[in-house]
Lab assay of single mutants.
Amino acid sequence: MASQGTKRSYEQMETDGERQNATEIRASVGKMIDGIGRFYIQMCTELKLSDYEGRLIQNSLTIERMVLSAFDERRNKYLEEHPSAGKDPKKTGGPIYKRVDRKWMRELVLYDKEEIRRIWRQANNGDDATAGLTHMMIWHSNLNDTTYQRTRALVRTGMDPRMCSLMQGSTLPRRSGAAGAAVKGVGTMVMELIRMIKRGINDRNFWRGENGRKTRSAYERMCNILKGKFQTAAQRAMMDQVRESRNPGNAEIEDLIFLARSALILRGSVAHKSCLPACVYGPAVASGYDFEKEGYSLVGIDPFKLLQNSQVYSLIRPNENPAHKSQLVWMACNSAAFEDLRVLSFIRGTKVSPRGKLSTRGVQIASNENMDAMESSTLELRSRYWAIRTRSGGNTNQQRASAGQISVQPAFSVQRNLPFDKPTIMAAFTGNTEGRTSDMRAEIIRMMEGAKPEEMSFQGRGVFELSDERAANPIVPSFDMSNEGSYFFGDNAEEYDN
């Protein structure tokens, strides 16, 4: 993207840094990872977990959730003011799984939030270390993106479920800051804005008074975040219109849905970061690795190297396929839920299948599930090659597409044709070009129609051997075009429920 120079890199967003050079960025990201790792080690000690239990991804998720809940100030305040039966607002906890007599047992633990905050700050040299908290939120978000298709949420806001490739980060909490905003897809931002506008339509006082002023500035800020994701002048001009509207209503909703559809071809720039579970960072720190000293990046080879040398386990339900569970977590670790499966298959070195073909449910185990038949197995999170994460949407291309997802959002900077089903997408653009945004709409449609099938995206960008740390010898991959490109292809993934 041309304006790259004016933006802070995501590592800076990730670490609240002012302008830093590459070495400083690597050190501050490393410091953040160190903090998460030290916190995780301490929690495993508190909970008396064995090494194996500490490497269980379900335990990692519970521990991450506990610290996120302990620092969720708004919710904590709300819980104190609106006490609900049987919930102690000062405590947080969740299921911890232990191996007892050759069987997995679930144990519900409860801790004072104050105590968890103390352990977290102690692991982070006394700081609140917001960057580390956001990092864990993005890992949870990436896992949700890989596990669930947001059909219901899309339909509720009037969008087409086939636009799911635009929904990265749709389950990120509001408090995820600049680093969170960077990884949100165009569809996620559109959905947040539509929800806001709908509230304004239904509630006369939404934009009024002292609160209304705050609401208005939040609305304009979200519009600017979305505008910054678009790469064409016409899309940005249309966002200006939406932002400046005196009284946002149905016309703005129409414009936003139009823009979301246009992003299936004229893709937005959305950041991709490899955020790993805390149970990967903990053992690495415990083994003596100093992330701050060595430096770390979320968008280069580092996460690949770390996963190459990590042992992570997962509980497996009786009829689940461990290899499929591994694929789910591998995609989440690489922030690749909406990437082209052919690119992923090449990088991973084994075939990556669409969601609907995987015999696996989510990673988390519900409290009512029976533990008797639970097994555990090693997650295979290694890769054959590594590639640089991208934040450009890439230019655009036609490809055989599917009944489910009709476009992709690249996660890796790797040369390819970008699949999208042009006739299906263009069919949504018939007729409606009147109104105050008509010239911009016409211009956007013209650009979409001009998108050429034979153009290559990320020209000359390749993948790298894991021994090639400096990215000196790019390998331009070859793809098996007979395979499906979309992950949520004609899909039956479970729906995400809060």
Rank of each mutant, 00 (worst) to 15 (best):
Val155Gln: 10
Ser170Tyr: 01
Ala493Ile: 02
Thr171Asp: 14
Leu381His: 08
Ser310Gln: 12
Glu369Gly: 10
Lys452Met: 07
Asp51Tyr: 00
Val352Gly: 09
Tyr385Gly: 03
Arg121Phe: 08
Leu418Arg: 01
Ala234Tyr: 04
Arg355Phe: 08
Glu80Cys: 09
Glu73Ala: 09
Ala27Tyr: 01
Gln231Arg: 14
Gly249Ala: 10
Arg446Ala: 12
Asn250Val: 08
Asp112Ser: 03
Val67Trp: 05
Leu307Asp: 05
Leu276Ala: 08
Val329Leu: 14
Ala428Leu: 03
Cys279Val: 13
Gly300Cys: 06
Leu172Thr: 04
Lys305Pro: 05
Ala237Cys: 14
Leu79Ser: 06
Val186Gln: 15
Thr92Asp: 06
Ala387Gly: 15
Asp88Leu: 03
Val186Leu: 13
Phe479Cys: 15
Arg26Pro: 01
Lys90Ala: 07
Leu418Trp: 00
Glu107Leu: 09
Phe230Ala: 10
Tyr496Gln: 00
Phe39Glu: 09
Arg361Met: 04
Gln241Gly: 07
Ser457Gln: 13
Asp497Glu: 08
Pro277Lys: 04
Gln459Pro: 11
Gly169Phe: 06
Gly349Ile: 03
Val67Met: 14
Cys275Val: 12
Ala27Thr: 10
Arg75Ser: 00
Arg213Phe: 05
Thr424Gly: 01
Val363Arg: 02
Ala129Arg: 14
Arg461Gly: 07
Asn309Trp: 03
Glu244Arg: 05
Asp255Ala: 02
Thr134Arg: 02
Arg348Ile: 09
Pro283Arg: 07
Thr147Cys: 14
Leu256Ala: 14
Asn59Leu: 04
Val476Phe: 00
Thr147Asn: 11
Glu455Gly: 14
Glu252Gly: 01
Asp51Val: 13
Lys113Pro: 02
Met426Phe: 02
Asn395Pro: 02
Asn76Leu: 13
Gln327Arg: 02
Pro474Tyr: 02
Tyr111Leu: 09
Gly404Pro: 04
Glu115Ala: 10
Met222Pro: 00
Gln149Met: 06
Arg342Gly: 15
Leu379Cys: 14
Gly35Ser: 15
Arg156Gly: 06
Glu252Ser: 04
Tyr313Ser: 12
Gln20Tyr: 01
Thr146Phe: 01
Pro318Cys: 13
Lys91Phe: 06
Asn498Phe: 05
Glu369Val: 08
Ala403Glu: 05
Asp480Thr: 10
Glu244Asp: 15
Glu53Cys: 09
Thr378Phe: 04
Ala131Asn: 12
Gln241Ser: 04
Thr430Ser: 15
Gly394Gln: 07
Asp468Val: 03
Ser165Asp: 04
Leu381Tyr: 01
